[in-house]
Design a protein around this nucleic acid. Structure first.
Lengths: 213, 213
DNA sequence: ATCTTTATCTACCGATCGGTAAATTTTCCG
DNA sequence: CGGAAAATTTACCGATCGGTAGATAAAGAT
């Protein structure tokens, strides 16, 4: 029984895996609509009906290959919110983990970016927005707690969230366009640091420390 | 002579214009590869060879419709750098102008985003990177002058540029994904303000005012 | 060994793609 | 008005698309 399961995983797993990784690379390099089923199967060294056997359709393989990175991402966000530490540490951790997953899954990320911020291109619907929204909520929560604890100024939560998300996004965007000029974790940290510290020489401290009752 | 030129502009201009705007909308809603020549011409109320008469190919119409917004953008950046004012004012002006053009040309912008940050999708090459680069150079210049004049802290120029570009990008990205939740000019201004002022309560003033010799 | 299930293949389908030849219509100009 | 140029059409092309039927091979179970 154990031997049988292992055999299945190896056989179906290998071809299936080749199709998935090949499709990921092709979707990332050409886009969903401009990638043909023929080139996916050719790349995997099988024939077309094999793709239909494992994935039912071109759409099926697309949906399957998007599932993993976004599942990881969602789990990350849920964990990161629960972690201890200063608001700043937690914010950095959250963003750096997100950045790591992005970089590890750069191909899926590229496809996601293209479709989330661009046209659907005939690709089946994936609720990318839910993932983004969850991340934004996590950032908001950490910011809110930072303000509550007097660590952060009393600023508009939404504005602050966009400032943080913007800093992270731009780092990921450099990764997409200029991998050779990658900011890397250190660069992400520095830009976030700057967003937290500000750029101007003189500023007003808008918020007072809120005493806990 | 004047009469002839006006007639030409009206006739060729009108059909040509309908094809261009229709293609822009379709590329923005479906993507380059998933948009067919048939639907472009159908939308314009002409037949397929008309598109080939005016634009030589599907690629030709794509290249033509990308030319205008990016031409405007480049001109904007060149002008904005020459304007007078405090570094902060200039930075805000530069970013808000860019935001305006983005919003006015949201369809072309959506296609650009999809291709610049995503796969080429069979679309012909447009040097989007040159435009981005030029904008980044403009931001760097304004930041450099702000530091030189003691208006901004002595921070890593590149980091500061990414912080600013990130804030602007995220506003544009909201525009692409959630137009109903548009930050608007005011929102962009506020997020930029926050990036300039920082979020933390306590910070170090790293740079000293540099005396001009 | 045989039978069943799973995995893979060859050959094919109807539909659609970007592009074009040749004919026709419309517009312009002298 | 007629002729030329510009604009538009109908009908067509070869190629490719996603998907599938039926056959076969491979793997697994008894």
């Amino acid at each position: 029984m154990a031997k049988r399961e292992r055999k299945e995983a190896e056989a179906g797993g290998e071809v299936r895996g080749r199709l998935l990784s090949g499709a990921t690379a092709l979707f990332a390099s050409k886009g969903y609509a401009a990638t043909t089923v023929r080139e996916i199967v050719e790349r995997a060294g099988v024939t077309k009906p094999v793709l239909y056997y494992y994935f039912r359709s071109k759409e099926g393989i697309y949906l399957d290959l998007m599932r993993e990175p976004f599942g990881k991402f969602a789990a990350l966000v849920d964990e990161a919110v629960l972690e201890a530490g200063s608001a700043k540490d937690r914010l950095f951790r959250l963003c750096l983990h997100a950045y790591d997953i992005f970089v590890e899954n750069i191909d899926a990320a590229r496809v996601m970016y293209s479709i989330y911020y661009g046209p659907p291109q005939g690709a089946p619907f994936v609720d990318f927005d839910a993932y983004h929204h969850r991340f934004q909520e996590a950032v908001l929560q950490v910011l809110r707690e930072g303000i509550r604890d007097g660590e952060f100024r009393r600023v508009n939560l939404s504005d602050a969230m966009w400032a943080v998300v913007g800093a992270l996004n731009v780092a990921m965007e450099v990764e997409l366009c200029h991998p050779k000029q990658s900011l890397g974790r250190d660069g992400v940290r520095r830009v976030l640091e700057l967003v937290l510290e500000g750029i101007v020489m003189n500023r007003k401290i808008t918020g007072k420390i809120r005493r806990k009752t």
